[in-house]
Amino acid sequence: MATVKFKYKGEEKEVDISKIKKVWRVGKMISFTWDEGGGKTGRGAVSEKDAPKELLQMLEKQ
């Protein structure tokens, strides 16, 4: 499965696309949330040019 790689608060992170729940556009950035388990929700953002095609497809479906 595809993953999204991004930096959050200076830390490199990687999230499996299948865990992503919500995707939206903020200017030229793609923001998203995912389920971290245990009732926690993670947040992240990646530039439109660095976003994997699967993430962009999720954005178009909404």
Rank of each mutant, 00 (worst) to 15 (best):
K61E: 10
T3H: 03
G38N: 07
K7Y: 05
K19E: 12
L55K: 00
K5S: 02
S31R: 10
W34N: 01
K5M: 02
V23L: 08
K28A: 04
L56Q: 12
D50L: 09
K7P: 05
L59I: 06
K13M: 09
Y8R: 01
K19S: 09
T41D: 14
F6Y: 06
E12Y: 11
E11R: 11
D16Q: 13
K9C: 15
G27D: 15
M58L: 12
P52Q: 03
T3R: 09
K5G: 01
E36W: 11
E36C: 14
A45P: 01
D50E: 09
G10V: 01
F6N: 01
G44E: 02
K61Y: 13
E48H: 05
E54N: 04
T33D: 06
V26P: 03
E12F: 09
D16R: 05
E54G: 05
K61I: 14
K61N: 10
L55P: 00
L55G: 00
S47V: 08
Q62S: 12
S47M: 11
E11A: 05
K61P: 12
T3F: 08
K7G: 03
A51Q: 03
V26W: 07
I30T: 02
K22L: 13
Y8T: 03
W24V: 03
T41N: 09
V15H: 01
E12D: 10
K40C: 15
K28R: 07
E60C: 15
V23C: 10
I20N: 00
E14R: 03
I17M: 06
K49N: 10
V15D: 00
T3M: 08
K53A: 04
M58Q: 05
V23A: 12
K53E: 12
W34P: 00
T33E: 09
M58E: 11
V4D: 00
G39H: 05
F6I: 04
Y8Q: 03
G38D: 11
D16K: 10
V46Y: 01
S47N: 09
S31V: 10
K61D: 12
E14I: 06
K22E: 13
M29C: 15
G37H: 10
T41K: 11
Q57V: 12
V23G: 03
K9L: 05
K40D: 12
K49W: 08
R25N: 05
E36H: 09
L56A: 08
I30L: 12
E14A: 05
T3E: 01
I17P: 02
K22G: 14
G42K: 09
T33L: 05
L59P: 02
T3L: 07
K61Q: 09
E36I: 09
R25E: 04
Q57T: 07
Q57K: 10
K61G: 13
S31I: 07
D35G: 04
K7E: 04
R25D: 03
V46H: 02
V26T: 06
V4T: 01
Q57C: 13
K53Q: 12
D35H: 12
K13I: 15
G37Q: 10
R25C: 15
W34I: 02
A45C: 14
T41C: 15
P52D: 03
F6K: 00
L55Q: 00
G44F: 15
M1W: 12
T41Y: 13
K40M: 12
E54I: 04
M58R: 06
L59K: 02
A51R: 01
V4M: 02
S31H: 09
E48M: 05
E60G: 09
K49Y: 12
I20Q: 00
K53S: 09
K9S: 03
V15K: 01
K13H: 09
E54Y: 04
D35W: 08
Y8W: 13
G37D: 11
S18M: 13
V46G: 01
Q57M: 14
G38V: 08
G39T: 09
K21C: 15
K5Q: 03
L55H: 00
K53F: 12
K53Y: 12
G10C: 14
V26Y: 10
V46R: 01
D35S: 09
G37P: 06
E36R: 07
K7A: 04
L59W: 05
K9D: 06
T33I: 13
W34L: 01
G42F: 14
D16A: 14
K19M: 14
W24Q: 04
T41V: 10
K13G: 02
E11N: 10
G37T: 13
S18Y: 10
D50T: 08
G38W: 08
A45R: 11
D16M: 11
K49F: 09
G10I: 01
M29T: 05
A2S: 06
I20P: 00
F6M: 02
S47T: 09
E60I: 12
E60A: 13
V23H: 02
E11L: 08
K40R: 13
Q62I: 10
M1D: 07
G10E: 02
R43A: 07
R43W: 06
K13V: 10
K22Q: 15
V15Y: 01
G39V: 11
D35E: 05
G38A: 09
D50K: 04
G44H: 06
V26K: 10
K53D: 07
G39D: 12
K9R: 07
M1P: 05
Q62K: 07
E48S: 04
Y8M: 02
F32E: 00
K13D: 01
F6L: 04
Y8C: 13
E11I: 10
D50V: 06
G42D: 13
